[in-house]
C-alpha cells in the first residue's frame, strides 16, 4: 500500500564545509513535524552531516559543486531523503560500505561514514557511477 505523504521539500546549496551545519539544522527543522525524540533527531543530524561531508570531501574533493537534498515525510512518521551530488562518483560501492575503508591517506578520517549512516537508517541505498555523481536514498522511521 502506498504511504500517505504529509510534506515535501527540496534544498540545493554549495558543497562547502560550512554548509554541513546548515544542512543538518535545516533537515532537523523539517523533520520536527514528525515529533521525533531527542535521540532520533541526533541520529538524523549525524546522517545528514555524514552525507554532506562526503559530497564536500569525496565527491567534489573541495572543488565547487552543488548538493541537492529532497525529502518527504509520511503519515506513518517515516521520512525519505535523497542526497545527490554531481561529483566524481564511486567506483566500488561495496568497498566504500566497508567499515574503516577510506580513500583519504592522511590518517585523519575514520572511514566510518557509510557504516554509521547505514546503522542509523531504516533503509539505506547508494546509487553511483564514476563521473556520474552519487545519490543516497535514506529512509528513517521515527517512533519505532
Amino acid at each position: 500500500m502506498k504511504k500517505k505523504q504529509i510534506n515535501g521539500m527540496k534544498l540545493e546549496f554549495d558543497a562547502i564545509s560550512s554548509n554541513e551545519a546548515f544542512a543538518r539544522q535545516t533537515m532537523c527543522a523539517f523533520a520536527a513535524g514528525l515529533d521525533p525524540t531527542i535521540d532520533e533527531i541526533s541520529d538524523l543530524r549525524v546522517i545528514i552531516s555524514e552525507a554532506v561531508t562526503n559530497c564536500v570531501v569525496h565527491a567534489y574533493k573541495n572543488a565547487p559543486g552543488k548538493v541537492e537534498i529532497t525529502a518527504k515525510t509520511y503519515e506513518d512518521r517515516s521520512m525519505r531523503i535523497k542526497i545527490k551530488d554531481r561529483g566524481c562518483g564511486i567506483e566500488d560501492i561495496d568497498k566504500c560500505m566497508q567499515p574503516l575503508y577510506t580513500t583519504d591517506p592522511s590518517g585523519e578520517r575514520g572511514g566510518m561514514g557509510f557504516a554509521i549512516m547505514q546503522a542509523m537508517s531504516e533503509k539505506f541505498r547508494v546509487v553511483s557511477a564514476p563521473g556520474a555523481g552519487t545519490a543516497l536514498y535514506i529512509e528513517i522511521k521515527f517512533g519505532k
Binding site: R24, R45, V46, S49, E108, R109, M112, G113, I116
Partner: peptide, 16 residues
Amino acid sequence: GFMDSSGLGLMLGRYT
C-alpha cells in the same frame, strides 16, 4: 553538543 565521523578521525589522528 554534536559529533560525526569527522570527530572519530580527529581522535584517531591524535591517537596516532
